[in-house]
């Protein structure tokens, strides 16, 4: 570093060689630029509707041979769409069908990217609008089957939305069942595979819940003693509830 500085020393003339009027002009212009920017009116608000995505061929052409980069850039653009030209659009104003077409087109550029499904399940499916929630949830459900072992977290999230936001337990059960049946990787945690059980119990389908636990124990998919103990406890609890139900009848 010292060598570099030593070699640079004396390369330029001293600062004092710059005339004062040049310094004055530079400082004046810098001050004017800062003042001008400070008094700049914000850009005129213009809430554009989300356009349709370009056809797949055209979208690929726009990547200039680098679809992974466009995948990320397009996602950033899409997520910024609710906040354009200084106006904050409500997520509810976004057309969910058009949104899913964009997300599908972006996923198509780089199917390994989790970003579009994360956005679909965490941002858009969380919008307080039932139609949007259903459309986005179904989109995540469809996309899940293309890569279940990596996309199960997003389906798990929309299953919870189906239960708590949509209050549609059969739909939540359907999603949870899909995770159990198709996400076969050992990296899928036990709670994700057992979500189905929780929903069955919530629906009062005790017989099915009992069969589910029995099937799970018999399949030897559960090896952890603590987990087996936990499932046995739940099984006993279900049997107690079944007896109470029979008695009340």
């Amino acid at each position: 570093m010292a060598t570099v500085l030593a070699s640079m020393a004396g390369r330029d003339r001293p600062w004092s060689h710059v005339p004062r009027w040049v310094w004055g002009l530079a400082l004046l212009c810098l001050g004017l630029q800062l003042l001008f920017h400070a008094h700049l009116n914000p850009p005129r608000a213009r809430a554009d509707a989300l356009p349709d995505p370009p056809p797949p061929g055209m979208f690929r052409l726009l990547t200039f041979g680098d679809p992974v980069a466009l995948n990320r850039l397009a996602m950033l653009w899409l997520q910024a769409f609710d906040y354009q030209s200084g106006v904050s659009l409500s997520f509810k104003d976004l057309d969910p069908h058009r949104l899913t077409r964009w997300l599908a087109a972006i996923i198509d550029l780089d199917p390994r990217s989790q970003y579009p499904l994360m956005a679909a399940s965490r941002f858009y499916a969380d919008i307080a609008c039932e139609e949007t929630q259903r459309v986005l949830s179904h989109f995540v459900y469809e996309q899940f089957f293309l890569d279940p072992n990596r996309r199960w977290p997003w389906l798990g999230h929309v299953a919870i939305i189906a239960k708590h936001r949509l209050h549609d337990l059969p739909l939540a059960l359907n999603y949870a069942r899909a995770i159990r049946q198709h996400a076969s990787s050992t990296s899928v945690p036990a709670w994700a595979r057992q979500m189905e059980l929780t929903f069955l119990e919530d629906m009062g389908e005790l017989e099915q819940a009992r069969l589910f636990i029995g099937g799970l124990l018999a399949s030897h998919l559960v090896n952890d003693p603590q987990e087996i103990h936990f499932l046995n406890q739940r099984l006993e609890g279900i049997e107690v509830r079944e007896k109470i139900q029979e008695m009340t009848r």
Binding site: P14, H17, V18, W23, L25, A26, C29
Partner: peptide
Amino acid sequence: VVQGGIYLSLLVAAALIDLYRKN
């Protein structure tokens, strides 16, 4: 015109500083 004028002057001033220091 205003933004262009101000920033052009600023850049010219900056270039002048460099030019006056150049050997």
